[in-house]
């Protein structure tokens, strides 16, 4: 859970007090619950799993049971301060469509994902010749919901190609020594990528 704490502490620096937040793929709602407690945010989670919806209800979180692959229709343009897609991008069928939807509905878009470029995962393929698994990626190839294999490098390239501007990149090192290395090594050293995005269209608004 140390990984989660690191992620949360970064997210807290990025999410202003009392902002309107939409958490896509909110899971059991633990992140929104923390943001509500620590940042007094307002907002909704979206998740497709009934069990997750139930957990959210238990925590008093407003949640919408829906499939992100269907987009965010019904949500007006620029109606949120922050839209989050945390550790869910790897399950999305149409990432370009969804990211554009996120940029449409929110001033600030935060995306985090498990980084397949991390050295430990690379070495599992290299030395063991097996599909890598880790704390963040615990699934076997045949039962994984993760249909996308993304690295930090891939994601940056993807944004360049699709006119999505990366405002900030936050390397999430698993320990403090990570910061001793140059930022360009993030793809090797970070188990997760965290990016703050904006559309080229809305440049200068946030």
């Amino acid at each position: 859970m140390i990984q989660d704490d690191i992620l949360l502490s970064h997210l807290l620096t990025l999410i202003p007090h009392r902002s309107r937040v939409l958490d896509l793929g909110c899971g059991d709602g633990h992140l929104l619950a923390q943001l509500k407690r620590l940042r007094q945010v307002e907002g909704y989670g979206i998740d497709k799993s009934f069990d997750n919806v139930l957990s959210c209800i238990r925590q008093g979180i407003s949640v919408y049971q829906g499939n992100l692959n269907e987009g965010l229709s019904g949500i007006p343009d620029q109606s949120y301060d922050v839209v989050l897609l945390s550790q869910t991008l790897q399950e999305i069928r149409k990432p370009v469509f969804l990211l554009n939807e996120m940029l449409r509905v929110s001033k600030k878009v935060i995306v985090t994902f498990p980084n397949f470029g991390h050295w430990r995962l690379r070495s599992q393929i290299f030395f063991k010749g097996q599909t890598p698994t880790s704390e963040t990626l615990p699934f076997d190839w045949y039962d994984t919901p993760n249909i996308r294999i993304i690295t930090i490098k891939d994601f940056k390239k993807f944004c360049r190609h699709h006119g999505i501007q990366i405002l900030e990149e936050h390397p999430l090192y698993p320990n403090p020594f990570g910061h001793l290395f140059p930022k360009s090594w993030s793809n090797l050293l970070c188990e997760k990528g965290l990016f703050v995005l904006m559309s080229d269209r809305t440049e200068g608004e946030f």
């Binding site: 909704y44 949640v63 919408y64």
Partner: peptide, 21 residues
């Protein structure tokens, strides 16, 4: 039902939506 939920969301009202399979 989703239309109702979206209207409530636009108003920032507390609303949870469940789609029973």
């Amino acid at each position: 039902s989703r239309e109702i939920v979206h209207a409530l969301m636009r108003l920032n009202k507390p609303v949870t939506y469940i789609e029973l399979d």
